[in-house]
Nucleic acid binder design. Sequence first.
RNA 1: AGGCGCGUAGCUCAGUGGCAGAGCGCUGCCCGCACACGGCAGAGGCGGGGGUUCAACUCCUUCCGCGCCUACCA
Length: 665
Amino acid sequence: MHPEDPRWRDLIGQRAILPLVGRAIPIVADEYSNPEKGSGAVKITPAHDFNDFAVGQRHDLPMPSVLDREALITLAEIAEAMTAVEGIADPGFLRALEGQSREAARKAIVAELDRLGLLEKTEPHTHQVPHGDRSGVPIEPLLTTQWFCNAAALAGPAIAAVEQGRTRFVPKQWENTFFAWLRDIQPWCISRQLWWGHRIPAWYGPDGQVFVARDEAAAREAARARYGSDAALTQDEDVLDTWFSSGLWPFSTLGWPEPTAEVARYYPTDVLVTGFDIIFFWVARMMMLGLHTMNQVPFRTVYIHGLVRDERGQKMAKSKGNVIDPLDLIDRYGADALRFTICALTGPGRDVKLGAARVESYRGFVTKLWNAARFCEMNAIGPAPGFDPAAARTPLARWLLDAANTAIAEATAALDSYRIDDYAAAGYRFTWNVFCDWFLELAKPLLDGPDGAELRAAAGHVLGLILRLLHPAMPFVTEALWDHFGYGAPCSLIRARWPEPAPLTGAEAARAELDWVIRLITEIRTARAELNVPPSVKAPVLLRDAAPATRARAARWDEAIRRLARAEHVAVLEGPAPSGAVQAVLDEATVVIPLGGLIDLAAERARLGKERERSRAEAEKLARKLANADFTARAPEEVVAENRERLAAAEAEAARLDAALARLG
RNA sequence: AGGCGCGUAGCUCAGUGGCAGAGCGCUGCCCGCACACGGCAGAGGCGGGGGUUCAACUCCUUCCGCGCCUACCA
């Protein structure tokens, strides 16, 4: 009864006769009883229900079982309590239940209660009971003796280790999951009734006395001490819970308890890579048992990755038919494409949504690398053993080497911080957008010139860097190329040193120069594309108002500009602008591309007007910001200065675009 | 119920006080000697309200929408 329930308060401490059995059972007060439900009085069976078991423990109640291992009715434990009570309990009826299934017994009991006139009514009632995973049958709790581990005592050191940072989680938020589980830990039942696994190290003597020992010999020793002679011992049939055995994995696999070299070398290890759903099943167990047994954390870092899901973010399941077979994807797109795709999609704390389309798109990158290498081979670019990056003098080589340093630094930092996606992106960007799109294209006209030898050597050097950078994510193609080009002995790439940035003094000049070349070519391409000038049409590129340094640059890159910007020739505009010219503003200069009647003047006017509006809007926004006294007074000096510079640049650009529009007429 | 997390371009995601980014997709042009699994160019966006701040995608609050975990499953 609920202790506060006025209907029953007077009965607490008295006894009630249990119908059918005839046993006198105590009436106890416990808050588990819900006064809102039915009569507010509930009969409990501590041996067959988790909640009832807790009530029974609180009140020190007897806990007889009426089900055997086959879940059939057994009366052995209530035989002595069975009492005939006229009109209420008939031992003969109970004895007829012996050996029956619980379903049959329940029917018989209801019928018997009805026959005795004790049944008021029956009504359907929905309640939650666990069902067997395989059988689908309701699970009946059965009171048995099990071995328990004092998990709370093991949890303390594991919690402390993470609190103190001796083991850290990446991403850090998963520490919460770890803490939440360990701080609310219950005694851990480590007994399993299975035929495989570690046997519980407990032996029983003839009188049921238990001897827990490291091994059977030690148990015999203990038994001899007790009985004074050798006694027949039987080992407990139970085996350890899978996760208990698994918790020993970080050291039991290394030969523990022997003091092997492997234990010394690999315990503790560096990083554990796993999924979040494993944090309490396995990670926490390895922590608890590792700290208890080895007195040291098993690993320094726990990297938690997301789950691989299907394209729509659904968890893969055979029953849903959305399982992606990696071997199938490998057959279609290659192992490198699949591996690189997963790297690229592995964001921090994010699940990976994997689909064939994604793998297909990254296959393009694998092919790109292959083709770039093919180009290198065709142009005698390869390993350059004597090449010293610090001694490179051509701007293009220095620019490439500088960009390679940046890529190496980015990739390394990304891997150090477990940002696999950033690592993949850094390699992708450098290989495709820097090496292929700009370096190789700019180098093409120069390979046979006086700088050819240095450019070839730099290109070969950087290709080797790319192979090393990408090898973890694209092992097969990089190794094939490494071997084919002879960057090292066959199969040596996996052991090759991870690249490090090589010092390059004064890279700023090369950066500024190539940055200008790239922006010039891009401006010209954009203008031509927006005015639909066919690529087959070549036109001169004229620079107006260009500073001497700019003119010199244009002269140095004449060949590359002609090739990549479809320019007939590059020259300085001395006289008045020709009519029918496309214009673009680049820093202090204006690029003029005379196309005569080929261009649509209205379209060019609209294009320049749009550019001018963009500059003007930017300038106005910045002017407003700088007009705010609070901003100039409170913002850091460098932020204010930066905004002033941006304002000046935007205003100058708007003015040059105004002038270009005026020239257009 | 409680806990954790997520809403940024058509899609998948970065970005954590100071100029909104990437990949894919899309649109247009291009098969000119590495690559059409390609090249060049382009369009397109911070879930809603309130607050803090000179300044908010970013910090606080609230609402809306979504996902996951815990209720004794390996």
